[in-house]
Structures are given as C-alpha cells and as structure tokens.
Amino acid sequence: MTALPQMILTPLARYGWATHDAVDRDEGAVLRELGRIGEMLGARIAGRAGAIEETIRPQASDDAHPRSLSAQFGLNALPFHAELSHRPRPCRYLLLGCLNPGSSGAATMLLDWRTLDFTADELRLLESAPVLVRTGRRSFYSTLLSPDHAFLRYDPGCLEAVDARGRCALDLVRRRLGSGLSEVHHWRRGDILVIDNWRTLHGRAPSRPSSGRRLARMLIDA
C-alpha cells in the first residue's frame, strides 16, 4: 500500500483532519483522487444506502432519509456528529470531495472532541451511561465513549437516553460542543477533506434550496 503523503498525514495526526486539492478539478479527477487517498487509509465501507461511493447534497426534511439528520434539521445547520454513529463501530475516516461548492457555500464545521476538556469523572460518565442507538430493527444499546476512549459516538439524530445518566451524558456532550472552538472549511471545487471520524466531529452550516452544493463522500475503515 502506498504511504499517505506527509501533507495529509501531518495535519491529520495533529488536528484530526486535513485538506487536499485535486490537481484537476473536474468531477472525474476529484473522484479518482478521493479513491486514491481512501486506498492509502484503509478499506472502503458502504454508507447508509449500501453505496461505496456517494454524492451528498443539502436536502429539505421531506426529501431526506427518515432516520437521517437531514430529515430532522433539513436545510438548517446540521449539528456536530460522528459519521455512522448508528453502527456498532463508526467508520475510522470520512473523505469528502467537492464536486460543486454551490451558491450558498454551506461550510463544513470541524471540532476535535478531545479539546472539550472533559474531566475524569465526565469521561467515566460518557463511557458508562447507557444510550439507545436507533437504527430500525437493528437498534442496540451502547455508550457515547468507547471503553478504550478511541472514539466518541455522537449523533443527535439516532441517540436516545434510557435513564437519567444517559440524559446527563447526552446533555454534557451537547453543551460542550456548543461552547467548543470549531474550525470552518469553506468549500472550493476540487477540495478534498480527510477527517479522522473517531476524533473529529463535523457539521454543516445552513444551506439554501437548490444551492447546487454537491460533495462526494467515501467512508473508510482501518
């Protein structure tokens, strides 16, 4: 397997995300570069619809998948979340490539959960308080923080508290995310964003109907 270039590897290790610019900005070149980087990181895994490679765009609530964040928030800002939180093990990396930035921009927000200054007691709460992960017939119980503290499972669209401790845990993360200092990525055609999904949560600024914003999405396990 080819080694990941230092221009991606260094910021990915330091900040939990990295940007890269496809040499050629046409859609085919962006998709090829996205695939090349994905192969260096690990194995592709299927998204919600079973597709290995997806094109995503802001959607109104009525047009979105009924269990998605877009169904709940529509074209308003999407809250911070970890991709595939509705699965027992979220994907390790999320790759996004800009096919069209659209007329409204709709920036992507990035926030490293490790910068949220959780105390030792709060970390124990996050790794022990039970929550229900709703995913249809395959719903399961879990915690927000994995036992080894490798990843934070957080997605307000699929997580539900089952007791008072779970409510405290969800409220704690929500409040810390609301006060955290996030990075903002404004999209240009050909941009590629590599996100360590176990470390960095992402969200989206508000969009307008028919803005034209389209991103290619690839999910990677490692």
Rank of each mutant, 00 (worst) to 15 (best):
G28Y: 05
S146F: 04
R48G: 04
R134E: 09
S68D: 05
L170S: 01
P66C: 00
Y141G: 13
L110D: 06
P66T: 01
A64S: 11
N100E: 06
G97Y: 00
S210Y: 11
T200S: 09
G38W: 00
L4E: 11
R14K: 12
L41S: 01
S61E: 09
Y15N: 13
E83A: 04
R175A: 11
T115C: 13
S207V: 06
R14V: 15
H185F: 14
I56G: 04
C158V: 15
W187P: 00
P58H: 14
F80W: 09
T2S: 01
S146K: 06
L201N: 00
G74W: 12
I56K: 14
R32G: 02
P147L: 06
L78W: 15
L99E: 00
G178P: 06
C168E: 11
G35S: 05
A60R: 13
D63F: 10
A216V: 01
L159W: 05
E122P: 13
A222N: 07
D62Q: 10
T10S: 14
T143D: 04
R137A: 08
G102H: 05
I56T: 07
T115G: 12
H65L: 14
D121P: 09
S182F: 07
L193S: 02
E127Q: 11
H202D: 08
T2M: 05
S103N: 05
R137H: 13
G180A: 14
E53A: 00
C91G: 13
A107S: 13
S146C: 07
R57A: 15
S210P: 14
C98Q: 02
P130M: 08
T135Q: 12
D24N: 12
D26Y: 05
G178L: 05
L69T: 06
I220S: 00
P156A: 07
P130R: 01
W187D: 03
E183S: 15
L12P: 03
E83P: 05
L9H: 05
V162I: 12
N76E: 07
R208Y: 02
G50C: 07
R214I: 03
M7F: 06
S128M: 05
V131D: 00
L95D: 00
P156V: 08
G212P: 08
E127D: 12
M109A: 08
L123D: 14
L144D: 01
S182N: 14
R175K: 12
A71E: 07
G47R: 03
P90K: 11
E160T: 07
L125Q: 05
D26C: 15
W187N: 04
S210C: 11
D112M: 07
A22Q: 03
D62F: 14
E122K: 09
M40R: 04
L145A: 03
C158Y: 03
D171P: 15
S211H: 09
S85A: 14
P209A: 10
P206H: 15
A3G: 02
P5C: 10
P101Q: 09
D24I: 15
A3P: 01
T119S: 14
P206S: 14
R175N: 11
C91E: 04
L95G: 01
R189S: 00
A71H: 12
H186I: 01
D191K: 11
L110T: 09
D62G: 11
D112C: 10
A161E: 02
A107G: 15
L126C: 07
D155I: 06
L31W: 01
P156M: 12
T2Q: 07
R165T: 04
